[in-house]
Amino acid sequence: MTNLFSVFDPSSSIFNLSLNWLSLFIGLLLIPNMYWFMPSRYHILWINILNTLHKEFKTLLGDINQKGTTLIFISLFSMILFNNFMGLFPYIFTGTSHLVLTLSLALPLWLSFMIYGWLNHTQHMFTHLVPQGTPGILMPFMVCIETISNIIRPGTLAVRLTANMIAGHLLMTLLGNTGPSLSSIIVTILLITQILLLTLESAVAIIQSYVFAILSTLYSSEVI
């Protein structure tokens, strides 16, 4: 069990140097290339993806017309997506499989939305606690339910991302560890299964980063 979970252990080290969390910043080494290289097809594809996300986030945010509002959510999407994909490579630490990282992304965002909303749009925030058309007798219960659902939002954001990252990686590790003791035919089936799982994990990496960014955008749009 210790070996199984060692890939998720932040204290594990390389050459006696604890460099695991530095995997979060590897993406910063790749960013400057776009400033002096001719745009490649991959670069143009990435710009098109970001433009599509910008339009979608702008639609969700609605009346907020301040420039650069969508930039924070696009940056969040890019960072999580990059770290999710980095975790699919062997021997690279997956930062997004730890609540330390996911909560440190979700909690400040949610807290800033709440503080801004309650200070600047207090009446609007109170109306969110009671859904339209709620009978008078149910109003106290609805306030409790809505308050609890609001408070657990950063936790659900963080746990969803962490659980999805851990689940796929553990399954792949479990299947990979059984390989040496199997016959050649079963190993071939196992390899095909691992390739299919890797494809699934690539899709999960994209979906989870998108879900995290889109839910953060929805939470911010409710505040205004």
Rank of each mutant, 00 (worst) to 15 (best):
I206V: 07
T162P: 00
L197R: 03
A167I: 14
A163I: 14
N177L: 11
S181G: 11
T217Q: 01
I166F: 09
Q194D: 05
T162N: 06
G176E: 14
G176A: 10
L200K: 05
N164Q: 12
V204A: 01
S183I: 07
M165W: 11
P180W: 12
P180I: 14
P180N: 13
I207N: 00
I206K: 02
G168Y: 15
I185N: 10
A163Y: 15
A213S: 09
L191P: 02
A205T: 04
I166P: 01
P180D: 14
T217H: 06
L190D: 09
Y210E: 00
T193W: 10
F212G: 01
P180A: 10
A203I: 07
L196I: 08
A163M: 13
L175R: 11
V211Y: 08
T217W: 03
I214Q: 03
I206A: 08
V187R: 08
V211K: 03
L198I: 02
T178Y: 11
A163K: 04
N164M: 10
Q194M: 13
I195R: 02
I195Y: 08
L190T: 04
S220I: 05
V187Y: 04
L174Q: 12
I189T: 04
I189E: 10
T217Y: 06
I192V: 13
N177Y: 13
S183A: 12
A163D: 14
L215V: 11
S184L: 05
L215N: 10
T178N: 07
L196R: 02
L171K: 07
Y219E: 15
G176F: 08
L175C: 10
G176Y: 08
T178A: 15
G168S: 15
M172R: 15
N177I: 14
G168K: 13
S202L: 06
G179Y: 11
T162A: 13
V211L: 09
L191N: 12
T193N: 07
V211H: 05
L197I: 04
T162L: 06
A205N: 03
I185G: 02
A163F: 15
Q194E: 14
F212S: 03
L218S: 06
L196F: 08
S202A: 12
V211I: 13
G168W: 13
M172V: 12
V211S: 01
L218K: 10
S216G: 10
I166D: 07
E201H: 06
